[in-house]
Design a protein around this nucleic acid. Structure first.
Length: 816
DNA sequence: CAGTGAGCGAGCTTCCGCTTGACTT
């Protein structure tokens, strides 16, 4: 619309993001037209590697399908512009984007300028315009090396996996290390033997001028055995307790740095329960609405103007003593700092309109930004030691008093470790030699914690720490490893565990054995057997590529290229020659890997029992394929692993399918299938509840419950059926009502009430639906592609969440 | 969506980093 009056424009500025373009256009005024390239416009061709191995790794670039339209428009605008300003980000990828643009748009050097800025403020932009430079060819070459290396690794390694492990698998510089982290942590957990000790805790009472107050304390020793603990508790009964020392120590707490992509993902996961993907899509909304700065960043810097705005708002709301201007330094390896930290565009705006999720995430960003420029909190820590007669062990009480809250007034960073939060409490005034009374005394057996499994966000943090991956790829990487079946994100309910408990009651020490649920997990990433087999394979044949410092090493190479010290093709050649040799040798020499373990012989038949990865995942096998009789097969349950399953457990799998009896005169059978454990009844399947039901132990009443639940759901799903044609149904789906007819689905227009549709109405809609499908032939082929991938997603546990998220997206869009 | 576990073997899959829509069953 505005384009027409601007065709005579002197200046065309090209940035990466359309939201950025909008903002910058306002700063630059009417002599400048600002457009966006939507990120990279070209990439290596998909077929034949996209790299000419015969000719010095010459990259074969093609304009991406979804960028053709953009490129066409930019090309024509560039033609009529006096000067084209390439304003992509100031990092390796941004430099490459500028170069690709100049190539594809055929820009003449004398009318092209390269400009950069790290923050979207008027000053920064105007300064950039005043100080243009040329495209940095060395930096571009470093990016080409990065791109080519990733393609070589990914497209040579993946096919090896297809041949040696399973089709459609993938490997890459980033994802394979992510999988390795999960697998190695899982094995630490396999090997972990929980230790236990008896902690002793007490509640004491102290009288101050007739006023009694209670406080908690813990013994500074943990007993190995129940008897030792009991002996000590007995000594405490009727003993004298005296304050030995009261030590006060001041301490300070400092605020955390402003958000980067990674820290935002972590905090949003801990405080708001968002997945990393969810955080990014909510942040994108806020960014597009102009409410926050760019959300894919590794920088903790704030623009000067932002700092002054934050400081002004702290001063006016809380006073000068709450202000402390701070400059943060990034700790992340290989950070490129092309943008600012993530902050509110207008830091004095404490809230925004929008969805509940947007408001919550904004609140987090607002507070973190503000707190980052606030004073330290001053804390006084008090440690009180209390003696028990003349025993060598003493009770210790810890107290914490906030003398000055500082940034804590606004924002407290959370921690993954829940145990951190226990200790701090308020202590009543005490002094040496005060005597105190024992009010409560107990000792509980505590087990050491196994290593923690990764959550999405903690895996991102680890990758960032290792310098692997970029802000724009953290979320996609996490979803890739789940889509490929290397990891599942889920809850595990834990297992009951007995523990010993001692307590004082009426002057006696009593003992009881109690049970707790141990090792429960919520929303954690679990590596699959496939992940373990693939990881072991890669480590044994390509240890260099999946090593934790591979990325760091190649980054050093890229830096050398960027400084013009090394030619990029030379660096690639040094890597590729031996790597390609490794690939060929592996193809030739390695066997197919299935992770097979032979567990023993079936006592009934004498046939071998083994476990391995089959066509459809981990399974157990009874008998060998050389036998005349066909072997029996059974899939492993999701908690079982090829590596850890015992002979007995594997043997049990062949007890399925199990007959539970009859219900309504029809057989009820329980088994494990493609989609996990199920109950079958009257030709219908009902899934067992993850973590609640066990196919080995489930009984008939529970099975009937599941069957009834499933019936209930099916009833809700069906809105209408028709006597005229059994194939035609109006159903309730994830995206609202739709028509199902002969295995195909059809939309119902928004203005029609689904329940009120007649048989004729439905037929009409089906007819119309078929028509539009035919006219959109190009999109029809596309849709089948999409279908496939969503079907894949469904089999992973993330499927459900993803689709609800996209459902929400659709809703909010149609609402606008 | 449903209980499979290839000696005929087509043709496909796959990487990492930049960016947003598209559009569902």
């Amino acid at each position: 619309m505005a384009k027409k009056e601007k065709t005579t424009e002197e200046n065309l500025v090209i940035v990466e993001s359309p939201a950025k373009a909008k903002t910058i256009e306002k700063f630059l005024g009417k002599d400048f037209l600002v457009k966006s390239s939507f990120g990279h416009i070209r990439d290596l061709a998909k077929k034949d590697f996209g790299i000419d191995l015969e000719h010095n790794y010459q990259p074969q670039y093609v304009v991406s399908e979804d960028k053709k339209e953009v490129v066409k428009e930019l090309k024509s605008l560039a033609k009529s512009a006096g000067v084209v300003w390439l304003a992509s980000d100031e990092d390796r990828e941004g430099e490459a984007i500028a170069w690709h643009l100049s190539e594809v748009l055929d820009l003449k050097q004398d009318k092209t300028r390269r400009i950069v800025f790290h923050e979207i403020t008027k000053d920064a932009i105007l300064r950039a315009i005043d100080t243009p430079r040329d495209i940095d060819t060395n930096l571009v070459n470093a990016q080409q090396a990065r791109r080519v290396l990733d393609r070589l690794v990914g497209f040579e390694l993946s096919p090896v996996l297809w041949k040696k492990v399973k089709p459609s698998l993938s490997a890459g510089r980033v994802q394979s290390v992510a999988v390795r982290l999960l697998v190695e942590r899982e094995r630490e957990i396999f090997d972990f033997k929980a230790d236990s000790a008896f902690r002793v805790s007490a509640v004491f009472t102290i009288s101050n001028n007739g006023k009694k107050s209670d406080f908690k304390a813990e013994l500074n020793h943990r007993f190995k055995t129940l008897d030792e603990a009991r002996e000590f508790l007995n000594k405490c009964v009727g003993a004298d307790f005296e304050v030995q020392s009261v030590v006060k120590k001041p301490s300070v707490k400092t605020p955390a740095a402003p958000f980067t992509t990674s820290t935002l993902q972590q905090e949003a996961a801990r405080k708001l329960g968002f997945s990393v993907g969810q955080t990014m899509s909510v942040a994108q909304k806020l960014y597009e609405a102009g409410k926050i700065t760019y959300m894919r960043t590794d920088s903790v810097n704030l623009a000067k103007s932002a700092v002054s705005a934050v400081v002004a708002s702290i001063k006016s709301e809380l006073g000068d003593e709450y202000v402390k201007v701070r400059q943060y330094k990034t700790k992340a390896k290989g950070a490129q700092e092309a943008h600012e930290a993530i902050r509110p565009t207008y830091p004095d705006k404490s809230s925004v309109t929008g969805s509940a999720q947007e408001q919550k995430l904004y609140d987090l960003i607002y507070k973190r930004t503000k707190a980052s420029q606030m004073s330290d909190a001053l804390i006084e820590k008090t440690t009180v030691n209390i003696s028990v007669n003349n025993e060598k062990y003493q009770f210790v009480a810890n107290g914490e008093v906030v003398k000055f809250d500082g940034f804590l007034r606004v924002y407290i960073e959370s921690s993954d470790n829940e145990e951190d939060e226990e200790s701090a409490s308020f202590l009543p005034p005490m002094k040496e030699k005060d005597s105190v009374d024992l009010k409560k005394l107990e000792s509980r057996q505590r087990f050491s914690q196994k290593p923690a499994r990764y959550s999405e966000a903690s895996l991102v943090r680890k990758l960032e720490e290792l310098g692997i991956g970029r802000p724009s790829t953290y979320a996609p990487t996490i979803s890739t490893i789940q889509q490929r079946g290397y990891a599942v994100k889920e809850d595990r309910p834990g297992t009951p565990r007995a523990y010993q408990f001692l307590w004082m009651e009426k002057g006696d020490i009593r003992h009881e054995e109690k049970t707790e649920m141990a090792n429960a997990e919520r929303n954690k990433l679990f590596p699959t057997d496939i992940a373990m087999v693939v990881n072991d394979f890669l480590i044994s044949y390509f240890p260099n590529v999946v090593s934790y410092d591979f990325t760091a090493k190649v980054e050093q190479e890229f830096d050398e290229i960027a400084m013009g010290k090394v030619e990029w093709q030379k660096a690639i050649d040094d890597f590729y020659k031996p790597f390609h040799h490794q690939v060929e040798e592996t193809l030739e020499k390695s066997d197919r890997t299935t992770g097979e373990r032979i567990l023993g012989e079936d006592p009934k038949t004498g046939k071998p029992v083994s476990v391995r990865i089959g066509r459809f995942g981990p399974m157990a096998q009874l008998g060998s394929s050389e036998d005349e009789e066909k072997p029996r097969y059974a899939p492993l349950t999701r908690e079982q692993h090829i590596e850890t399953i015992t002979f007995e457990e594997a043997l049990k799998l062949f007890d399925l399918p199990r007959d539970l009896g009859t219900y309504e005169d029809k057989k009820v059978v329980v088994g494990v299938g493609r989609f996990g454990p199920y109950v079958r009844h009257d030709g219908k399947f009902a899934s067992l509840k993850k973590g609640i039901d066990d196919p080995m132990t489930i009984d008939l009443p529970r099975a009937i419950e599941l069957i009834e639940e499933k019936r209930e759901r099916d009833n809700k799903k069906t809105i209408k059926t028709f006597e005229e044609d059994k194939d035609l149904q109006v159903l309730n789906g994830r995206w609202g009502p739709y028509i199902s007819y002969k295995k195909k689905n059809y939309k119902i227009p928004k203005d029609q009430e689904a329940a009120a549709l007649s048989y004729q109405d439905c037929l009409k809609l089906v007819e119309e639906g078929d028509k539009t499908k035919k006219t959109k032939k190009v999109t029809a082929t596309k849709t089948t592609g999409v279908k496939k991938s969503t079907a894949k997603k469904k089999s992973g546990s993330t499927g459900k969440k993803k689709s609800t998220a996209s459902a929400a997206k659709t809703k909010s869009k149609s609402a606008k």
